[in-house]
Design a protein around this nucleic acid. Structure first.
Length: 214
DNA sequence: AACTCGGGGCA
DNA sequence: TGCCCAGAGTT
């Protein structure tokens, strides 16, 4: 059984990752909370690169809840086709936009709880939007966060729920959001699911996976 | 907690 | 074809 990073190592790990990825924020490009919400809904089972491309293009013409709430569903489906599962996503974007328009006066709600009431918005999307757009401290354990945090030994848990609790205990609340984005950046750029680039990894001196495998 | 649903892109 | 991808909703 591998040990896990000490509190000091964990702090240092986050420090190094911050230096490594100075631009680490949200990988989903956005100019407004609403754009981020749409992009995040699109990001389910789809790479951020493709989401950014589709969203950027679409928002040149359509960029308000009103635009999408009244848009023909077929048209919306064709606009977001590249992002996959587009029928559900189109339906959800349209429906969420209507709710935002009618119940929130056109403004995206700023709490995790309210965001989750929107159709197609679950825990992860709500966390990303609330933390990125509104500064709510949050850690949403997606595949990257789960893989990276467990692999390097930041925590040692077997499922996402336990990982989320462990991370919240291990990390100061004011660093939750930052840590969330850092794990995802690291997971995409270096600590990939297969063939991680351990030799160029900036935290390989601390990493339990690297120690254990070398 | 386990399960279903879901689709384009790329090798 | 098979595998990947920053999930949501229902039971």
């Amino acid at each position: 059984m591998k040990d896990i990073l000490t509190h000091e190592e964990a702090e240092k790990c986050l420090d190094i990752l911050e230096e490594t990825y100075p631009d680490a924020h949200c990988e989903l490009e956005h100019n407004s909370p609403y754009e981020l919400l749409v992009a995040t809904i699109l990001s389910a089972q789809c790479t951020d690169i493709r989401v950014n491309k589709v969203t950027r293009e679409m928002f040149k013409k359509y960029n308000t809840p009103k635009d999408f709430a009244y848009m023909d569903i077929k048209k919306l489906e064709s606009l977001i086709k590249e992002c996959g599962i587009y029928r559900n996503k189109a339906k959800n974007i349209k429906a969420s936009s209507s709710v935002i328009l009618e119940e929130y006066n056109g403004e995206v709600p700023n709490t995790i709880e309210e965001l989750m009431k929107l159709p197609g918005v679950g825990k992860k999307t709500a966390n990303v939007v609330a933390s990125t757009a509104f500064g709510v401290p949050a850690i949403a354990v997606d595949t990257h966060v789960f893989r990276v945090s467990n692999r390097i030994g930041f925590v040692h848990e077997k499922n996402v729920e336990a990982t989320e609790r462990a991370l919240q205990n291990k990390i100061d609340k004011n660093r939750w959001t930052k840590a969330h984005h850092l794990f995802i950046f690291h997971g995409r750029r270096c600590c990939t699911a297969r063939n991680p680039k351990c030799e160029i990894c900036t935290i390989n001196k601390i990493c339990r996976y690297y120690e254990g495998d070398s």
